[in-house]
Each structure stands twice: as structure tokens, then as C-alpha cells.
Design a protein around this nucleic acid. Structure first.
Lengths: 151, 151
DNA sequence: AGGTATTGCGCAATCA
DNA sequence: ATGATTGCGCAATACC
């Protein structure tokens, strides 16, 4: 995909390096504007003065016109290239962020686990301590053994 | 934020010929493609047989050709629109991911803090416990209430 | 004023 | 043969 569309015109290299062609817009196929007013031979039509045509014609042949076009074409290419690049970068960014996200998520998991372990440990010891220090309640089991720590 | 460039359906021909395109393509402005060699004096070039041109010409006039073009134009529009949409979505994705990242990062911070607090607490109690547990025999009075931890 | 940068559009070559 | 993509040129116009 993306091949020499027309074997003509610009020596746009396949690699994207465009060579500014000479002033001579010698191309292969060139369509002459030839704007035909398409005279409205409609009912009640009126003749139109063919005045501006020639000028248009001249414009296109103009050297300056060609130059402007050339510049613009270049600008367009550049712009599009940039746009594409940007899109690509954005996509890349997404990937990076996704990765980082996973990393963070993993870390969270780890921390959570660590935390829970520590909490359990702490509770256990607390109970032990309580049992040790407090007079043994000869009654049942331990006072409270619930460690409902959510997360 | 661009706007409709033209209010009239003005189509620019491949070669720069502007043509008003009426819905019914059977009316005003007949623009004959008129392929011109445009290269009257090519360096060692050779005149091309005008044989295939006619064919090309005919092709363009062909109803079928027009139809094909029309369909393709439609497809192109669709494709580009989709492409644009996709880019937009990707950008959006970036934003979302960035947000989520911040969220996660905050959570990590929180968990870390919690963890450190708990650790300290645990250490303290562990010490207490150790002091307690060590000599059950001895008549140790109070378990010591020192805060022997650095920082 | 004079330029570049963007954008919509159509064409043609490819791809699928 | 058909729709989808893609590179490209043109023209309008946005942006300096």
C-alpha cells in the first residue's frame, strides 16, 4: 500500500524524501483546467461573458502558482506526517500508561497483602498479650476473635 | 474547528479543475478531462500513442466509472471519519489512564503509610511481648515502658 | 501583507 | 468485483 500513484509528477521518493522539482512543471499528464462555463442553455438562459476564464487559465500556468502549490504540497505532507506521528505517539502513550498501571496495581496488591498479614499478626499478638496480662477469664474462649478488617 | 469550505458542492478535480458538481451529474459544466501530454519536449522522450488515452477518456465518461468513484468517495469519507474517531478515542484513553494512574498512585501512598504505621506499632508490641514473655518466673514487675526505638 | 499549517475532498493504487 | 485504506494534490481557510 502506498505506492507511486502516478508515475509522474513529483519525484516524491518512496522514502518520503521529496525533491523539490524544478520550476518547469513538466509532468506527464496534465489536465488543462478548461473550465467550461457550461452555458446554461436552459430556457430563458442568457449569454455569459467569458471573461474570467482566461485569467484562471493564466493563473494555473503561472510560475508563481506552481510555486505556491508546490510549497503547499510540501506543507501538507509535513502536516500529515506530523499528525500521523502524533497519533502514533498517543498510541504509544496508551501502552506505556497501561503498563505502568499494571505495575501500580501489582504494587497495590503486594502492599495490601503485606498489610493484611501484618494486621493479622498484630491482632494475634495483641490477643496473646491480652491473655497474658489479663487475668484468665475462666469462662469460655477468647473475648473477641474477630478481625474484620476490610480493605 | 474548520468549516465547510464551500457552500456549494464544489469538487476539485484531480488536476485542479474546479467543477461544480450538481447532484444530477448531467448538467452544467462539462469539464472534459482533456489529458494533455504536457511534456512537449521531453529529453529524449517519445510521443505516446494516443491510443490508451481514448480509453481512459471513455472510462471517465462511463456511467460505471462515475458510480465507482462515488462509492469510493463515500468509503473514503467513512474511513477517514472512523480514523479520526479512533484517534480521538485513543486520546481519551490516555486521559483516563492518566487519571487512573494518579488514583493508584495515591492509593499506594496511603497503603504505604498505613503499613509503616502498623509496622511501628507491631515492633513496639513485639518488644513489649518479648519482655513479658522472657522471664515468666522471675518476679518481674512491670513490663517496662520504654520506647526504645529509633526512628 | 505574505507566509505556513490544517482540513475537507476527490482521485487512484492497493489491500483484503 | 467490492468496500476499506492510504498517499497525494488542490483549494479554502485558519493561524501568524
Amino acid at each position: 500500500m502506498s505506492r507511486p500513484q502516478q508515475q509522474a509528477k513529483l519525484s516524491t521518493d518512496h522514502n518520503g524524501v521529496s525533491v523539490i522539482q524544478s520550476q518547469a512543471h513538466a509532468s506527464s499528464l496534465q489536465q488543462v483546467p478548461q473550465l467550461v462555463p457550461a452555458n446554461p442553455s436552459a430556457p430563458g438562459g442568457k449569454a455569459q461573458a467569458p471573461s474570467k476564464m482566461k485569467k484562471a487559465q493564466a493563473d494555473k500556468d503561472s510560475d508563481e502558482y506552481r510555486q505556491r502549490r508546490e510549497r503547499n504540497n510540501l506543507a501538507v505532507k509535513k502536516s500529515r506526517q506530523r499528525s500521523k506521528q502524533k497519533a502514533q505517539d498517543t498510541q504509544q502513550r496508551v501502552n506505556e500508561l497501561k503498563e505502568e498501571n499494571e505495575r501500580l496495581e501489582a504494587k497495590i496488591k503486594l502492599l495490601s497483602k503485606e498489610l493484611s498479614v501484618l494486621k493479622d499478626l498484630f491482632l494475634e499478638h495483641a490477643h496473646n498479650l491480652a491473655d497474658n496480662v489479663q487475668p484468665p477469664n475462666v469462662d469460655g474462649s477468647s473475648p473477641a476473635a474477630n478481625g474484620p478488617n476490610g480493605q
